[in-house]
Design a protein around this nucleic acid. Structure first.
Lengths: 163, 163
DNA sequence: CCGACTCGGTTGCTTGATGCAACCTTATGT
DNA sequence: ACATAAGGTTGCATCAAGCAACCGAGTCGG
């Protein structure tokens, strides 16, 4: 992307995409949501170029979607955590996941199933528990591998969000 | 974007973003959903470069998200319509819209309100009518200007989808 | 004590996507 | 005859993404 803005668009979709619409950004958020918190983990899991990852993380921190916290000193090492604003992207991710599931042909079923932590019921693409009917948020759900997946690469979404 | 794929990602979010994650793509879908169907209309409304718009439209047609139909011959002129697969992006757009509304400071309120056609109730970011509780789809809703907006640029989402 | 490895980046270079303006074709308006 | 419209295509300049090498602080193995 040349510029990451969409000038002249008075629309919250455009505003949202200015922030999270760059290549890799939503996948980074997904991975952090799934418990990947460190630079190396994210880099290896995504296969993204290191400089690009560094620049995306910086932007996400600037936009208050991620928070960068040291987990040790000397050498200083950092982890990235989702803020409330970042966790709040969960419905959008679930909606995209649902669309992808419905329209991408996978031989062995969807690679990820989202379930309601409390009751174990499946979660719809609207982020609603199909078992108990509650409208869920990131912390209420977690992801399980669904079909034939490489466990190395499986993001277990929202398994341990935010801390 | 260099390549528009995310190699090695066994995840429907990644699959979805491979198709609709390129710059401009979701905004094009939003505009077509709002009734903009012609090349010139889309180009002017979005301010996107013409060659980029042409390439996005081609890809969206290839991916069966848009359908290109002639509306006159000699000279041949075309309009773009959403397929079912394209209309099915509505929940994701609504979720992004909601996130943008919640986290983008607008002085005069959200620039767009989505309402349920049938009962006129406001629609949540999960695509659910807050008045009657129904889980909605693209055709069930339409968008109204919400705050201080330039009417020239206001996409009236899903006002007349698909035909 | 020396070398190899880890982690979290940064730097430099190359490739390719995006932005922009000009042009093309068919046709209508005046 | 000339301008305008629609729906693109072409060429060129610029900027972002991919890739590999490097760096600095520290730890581990021998």
């Amino acid at each position: 992307m040349l510029r990451h803005d969409y000038p002249g668009q008075d629309c919250s979709i455009a505003k949202a995409l200015e922030v999270v619409g760059e290549r890799w950004t939503l996948l980074i958020v997904r991975d952090v949501m799934s418990g990947r918190r460190r630079f190396g983990e994210l880099q290896k899991g995504l296969g993204v170029a290191r400089n690009v990852l560094a620049s995306r993380l910086e932007r996400l921190v600037d936009e208050d979607i991620l928070e960068r916290r040291p987990y040790q000193e000397s050498p200083e090492r950092y982890e990235y955590f989702l803020t409330e604003k970042g966790l709040d992207l969960w419905p959008a991710l679930v909606a995209l996941l649902g669309w992808g599931d419905r329209h991408t042909p996978y031989e062995s079923g969807p690679p990820l199933r989202i379930v309601h932590k409390e009751c174990g019921g499946p979660v719809s693409d609207r982020g609603i528990c199909e078992s108990c009917g509650k409208v869920l948020h990131a912390r209420d759900a977690r992801a399980l591998p669904g079909g034939a997946v490489d466990p190395e690469r499986t993001p277990a979404m929202a398994q341990a969000p935010h801390a």
